Amino acid sequence: MPGAADLLALARDGDGDAFRALVEPYRRELEVHCYRILGSVQDAEDLLQETLLAAWRGIGGYEERASLRTWLYRIATNRCLNALRAGARRPPEYADYRPEVALPEPSHRRAEPSWLEPYPDVLLDEITDHTPGPEARYELRESVSLAFLAALQDLPPKQRVVLVLRDVLGYRAAEVAAMLDTTEDAVAGALKRARRGMPGPGGGSAPLPSSPQERRIVADFVRAFEAGDVDAVVALLTDDAWLTMPPLPLEYQGLDAVRNFLATVALRDGKRHVLIPTRANGQPAFGCYQRDPRTPILHAHGVIVLTLSGDRVAAVTRFIDNSLLATFGLPRSLRPTDGQG
């Protein structure tokens, strides 16, 4: 197998296979970088392709002033900034979304829809381990958590990318300034403002993934939700738990608000669901399917992600876009097995 220098020389001479071998170790982490900035799996996939195409076209001009990885991150970051400035990231099929029943008045109403989508853990596992720089503040699991990403999406684009490049990826201020064609002072100012709006790192309150504690909480939630037992679901929540449904801008906080939503919408009139376990953003997740009393078919009903805190559920996020199930390798409909009743 040729070394990196040989692959670079071949790629500059127009060898596509050499170029693919050169960038392959960075492909998944670049996609996750785009996902952090954009909040959308589909947008991240699209921007990754744009990044690699731009890199292929520009490989002849790569002067090796920075590492290949840094050069690729520069391209990806600026492509993401361009996408955010264009303001075109609005899935048209959900512009006129209408729920089956009228939704109760929310505790909070965001100024605009949240286009955040879940990211499968199975893809995160493909990232090559590049230890963050000494100034990085967020570990991989925390830097893709829904709470972190939701806060990130509320930042202005320049602050968003500066925080990711500095605090997640550990790039030095001078490197970030070079990537963004700006000054180190501008980078320092953007980072200071961005940090004010972000949760502190390393909360450590969630159980470890796949630990006995996490498995117990998840099993209790599945049992209660599939049984349609509103009281049992609520008993698993923290007092200030959140229930959200991206991209809808409606947010329900607190036991009373969540209980009312479950009783009048999600679990009303004896509605029953089957939850198929998966993982997203380092958190327990499920493909949600609703039982149809007229047929044996289970119909897709979005993706649910749980945010855990200690031995309770701090947030239930239900993504209403059924097309997201395919990202997790799950179908749009299921026939129940014996184990699913």
Score class of each variant (00 low, 15 high):
D256Q: 08
T183S: 11
L53A: 14
Q290M: 12
D239W: 07
E175P: 05
T317W: 02
Y252I: 05
Q153D: 11
D269C: 14
D292T: 05
M245I: 08
L68W: 08
L324K: 06
A88E: 12
E112V: 08
R215Q: 13
G287C: 09
I276L: 15
F286P: 07
Y94G: 10
L325V: 09
Q49W: 10
Y26L: 12
I304M: 13
R172Y: 06
R312G: 08
L116V: 14
V313F: 05
K158S: 14
E226I: 09
E93A: 13
L248R: 14
S107G: 15
R216F: 01
Y171P: 02
I217E: 00
E175F: 01
A314F: 07
A235R: 11
L52K: 05
S205Y: 04
I37D: 00
D96Q: 02
A54R: 09
A66E: 10
S40V: 01
D6N: 10
E93H: 14
L325P: 06
S333F: 11
D269K: 05
P207G: 07
R318T: 12
F328C: 08
P157L: 06
E45P: 08
A4G: 02
R279V: 10
R12H: 09
Y252A: 09
S333H: 12
A241T: 03
R332V: 04
Q159V: 02
R160A: 06
P91R: 00
A76W: 01
A206Q: 05
L7D: 01
A66Y: 14
R223L: 06
F221N: 02
Y35M: 07
V233P: 00
E184G: 10
E184T: 14
V144D: 02
L124T: 09
V303G: 00
G170T: 02
Q49V: 06
P104A: 09
P134T: 15
A76H: 00
L7F: 09
D167K: 05
G287T: 07
L208T: 11
L48S: 04
R110T: 04
T77S: 06
V305L: 08
L48H: 11
A280L: 05
A44L: 03
A18V: 07
N78M: 14
L243F: 12
E63G: 03
A5I: 08
G302N: 13
Y289L: 11
P246D: 14
V274Q: 10
